[in-house]
Design a protein around this nucleic acid. Structure first.
Lengths: 190, 190, 190, 190
DNA sequence: TATGAATGAGGTTTCATTCAT
DNA sequence: TATGAATGAAACCTCATTCAT
């Protein structure tokens, strides 16, 4: 779906470059070049480099938030929902490898002004997961463990698995992992 | 145990600064100032900024490798060993919060010249973990799952848990997490 | 003929500063200041300090090459041509004292990447001079001596005379020297 | 004649390094290393880098001054003396290629504090040559031209010839050049 | 007297950002 | 609205020089 919208072209180019080289090792001019626009256009649309980066992160997180919401509403059980959430992350990874790499690799630093905003989105996602654990406990699917901690651990599992995939590039094994992680996790808490 | 050895002072200062602000946002002069040495002294001892950073990473990884080795030799069962390995990571985290933050946050980029060396150390650690799974399977402690994949997932669990701890700063809960993760993981694979 | 072209302003400023203080003792920022441009502009136009220096040398050598070519084509005899070539060097010296100083003073070192290119230009000039000696010998103007060696010696004479002029600043005497050198070269002093 | 005198070892090493790479591209530590002494020893003996360099220049010029004096006293005619002076420069060149390279290549800049002293030595040499021209004119060997200018031109010839030799590395031809230059100078080429 | 670890001034270079066109 | 030339702050790094041993 080729757009000629400068914003989209810039965002796309930024995603690829930031994923490949990280925030600091990517020059704004490289992004502009790859997007076939002038450097000034990047600034007209995003104000500065940090905001461009943050916009990318936000886009990714919102996408995850929306899809999680969707899964929650259309699932029969908590364990099914959680499995689908895990699976969904791998799907996004396959579609937007770079976006996930960015989120995984530059999670902590590089969020400057948007720190609060991004952190709050992350907490929203944790809450979505926690809701599923509460649901599961109420339905008798899981043991009665602290749902908040469970959510934190589950969120960690997701990133951890993506991290392995990125680090070792063994993406072709993704279904194996996704399945293995689900298996371990759910058998562990039943 | 205050040393006056410049190398140690620099390494310590670098660890703190890199953890706080990341590689690129930390100036060599800031490290020098914090270590109470001249800028030139940093260069005399480490050659350049990247090597200083890499030295820090190597130190951390070697420490983990050594302790894992030690645990492997002195444990009665595979599950005990793996639990201790997880626990050990939290201990190191408590002692050198910054070092772990660096490893977690700047895993992918910023390793330049030392990439191969560091990656091979990481693989060594994975192998150490895999050895425990093989041991556990042989001893009938675990299900007969692919030990290599198990190792990758377990390594992921470690980072996931540390990542949560770092991100949310809820280190005071560490025992809870460590225990929870162990519980889930081992019940899941028994 | 004041230009506002940054390249020209930078080249002019560089010429003056390099001549006054040599390559190493001239800071790029000084050149930028004197040219009334930002430091970055120097780098945008010339890439780095060494290339800026080399560009200056090339410009000078090309000018000499062109004018020598011109003299060769428009002269009645070899000795007339050679006299004019000598005279031309003094003219250039008067117009661009600094450029000649640079070429005289930093001939050997400081040419790094452009070494081959510059040396080959120098050889071209030697060839131009040699051509005049061949012409002169054929026309019976000169003794039948090895034209290549004659060219080397003549080229030496040029630099020698310029060197004296630069070293002692006795430029006001230039006509005297130029004439004296011609006289000696063609007739000797006995 | 191997000395263990630190000063001599340093001077020798400095000569080689300065000739090879020029003043600025030679580090004091490189000189110290090559001389097998500590960096501090260089400073103890010569105070600073510039003085070390100047000492080298002075040594060379004094040597030339002394030998010229000697030639003047032991020669039968002015033209013989001048020929021997020219020849002597080539001899020194063969023995101390580097020293001559230094003097030729870094004549103008790099003399800082010693500027006056070195310039006065150079003028002394010019005077020695001028004396020979006066002698030659008085003895009827040469035409009655301005001896000062003749001296300047002759001095220029010397450097010019050495410059060619250094630039093109055609030192094996030295006798040819030396002879050719003498011939031209005294008899011309017509 | 000799040393070399430590220092920091100073130099080169990059690149995010601005703004006139 | 789009551009990219110009800018200069700020970072990395070198190396002459000092001085405690």
């Amino acid at each position: 779906m080729e757009t000629n919208n400068p914003s989209d072209k810039i965002l796309q180019a930024a995603q690829e470059e930031f994923a490949k080289k990280g925030f600091h090792d990517t020059a704004v001019s490289e992004i502009a070049d790859k997007a076939n626009v002038g450097k000034g256009t990047v600034y007209r649309h995003f104000g500065n480099k940090e905001t461009l980066f943050g916009t990318l992160l936000k886009r990714g997180i919102h996408r995850i938030l929306d899809q999680t919401e969707n899964i929650a509403e259309n699932s029969d059980s908590a364990s099914q929902a959680l499995e689908q959430i895990l699976e969904m992350h791998f799907q996004i990874f396959e579609e937007s490898k770079e976006l996930v790499e960015i989120i995984v690799n530059e999670g902590k630093h590089r969020i400057g002004t948007m720190r609060e905003e991004l952190l709050s989105e992350d907490l929203k996602h944790r809450q979505q997961i926690e809701d599923q654990f509460i649901r599961g406990i109420n339905r008798g699917e899981f043991e009665d463990l602290d749902p908040e901690k469970m959510a934190i651990v589950f969120q960690g599992f997701i990133w951890a698995t993506l991290r392995s995939a990125i680090l070792y590039g063994e993406m072709n094994l993704r279904r194996d992992y996704s399945g293995l992680v689900s298996k371990i996790f759910f058998k562990g808490i039943e």
